[in-house]
């Protein structure tokens, strides 16, 4: 797998941990990157994930996990600086550019990603995807929201209920 480009600290042997996806793919990453996950951080602090052991993640498939780790590796240096108060504007702009591109992906991947971020407790990633989904539905009518998010077409009962609530609210709705 791709090594992180940002080798700034160069403290020789950064501690590595191994994560195992639900489909048994092994990912080796720096402990600092994996620690963006609150869930993993505790295990890693306890000395887990080192050597040949690896930390099994039964809820996350390899496609999703590689995406999650891409985010973690990119954000780890800034997170290590404690929210990076001394980060330059260039660094922040670069992260923002990365984030924007990062969520420019297929909806199914987006949903797996937010679920994984939620389970692994990676706050930044969760907000990033939440914001993206919110942007997809903002300004849309209830029906458009349903279609955008892949809800099945409403049953006649659901439709009747929507109409009743719509009347109650009085909002325009096509």
């Amino acid at each position: 797998m791709a090594a992180p480009e940002s080798g700034d600290g160069n403290n020789g042997a950064a501690r590595m941990v191994t994560l195992i996806s639900s489909d048994n793919t092994r990912f080796e990453v720096e402990a600092a990157a994996a620690s963006l996950s609150q869930t993993l951080q505790l295990t890693i602090l306890d000395g887990g994930g080192g050597g040949g052991d690896g930390i099994p993640l039964p809820n996350v498939d390899s496609a999703t996990l590689s995406k999650v780790l891409e985010y973690c590796i990119k954000h780890a240096p800034a997170a290590a600086n404690g929210g990076a108060p001394n980060a330059t504007a260039v660094d922040r702009a670069e992260l923002e550019r990365f984030d924007n591109e990062f969520v420019n992906i297929d909806q199914s991947v987006l949903y797996s990603l937010i679920m994984a971020a939620h389970n692994l407790e990676i706050e930044g990633l969760q907000s990033l995807v939440a914001k993206k989904v919110a942007d997809m539905i903002k300004g849309k009518s209830p029906m458009e929201i349903r279609r955008t998010l892949g809800f099945p077409d409403p049953t006649p009962e659901e439709q009747a209920e929507m109409n009743a609530h719509m009347l109650e609210y009085g909002w325009a709705y096509e």
């Binding site: 679920m115 907000s127 609530h165």
Partner: peptide, 30 residues
């Protein structure tokens, strides 16, 4: 499309990101 995961915490996170416009929450509520 692939459906959004049915998780209330996540749904709350998403809806919290909606702009506070007159239509946002009422539309979501429908």
């Amino acid at each position: 499309r692939h459906p959004l995961p049915e998780n209330d915490d996540l749904l709350a996170e998403i809806l919290l990101c909606l702009p506070p416009h007159p239509s946002s929450l009422p539309h979501a509520g429908l």
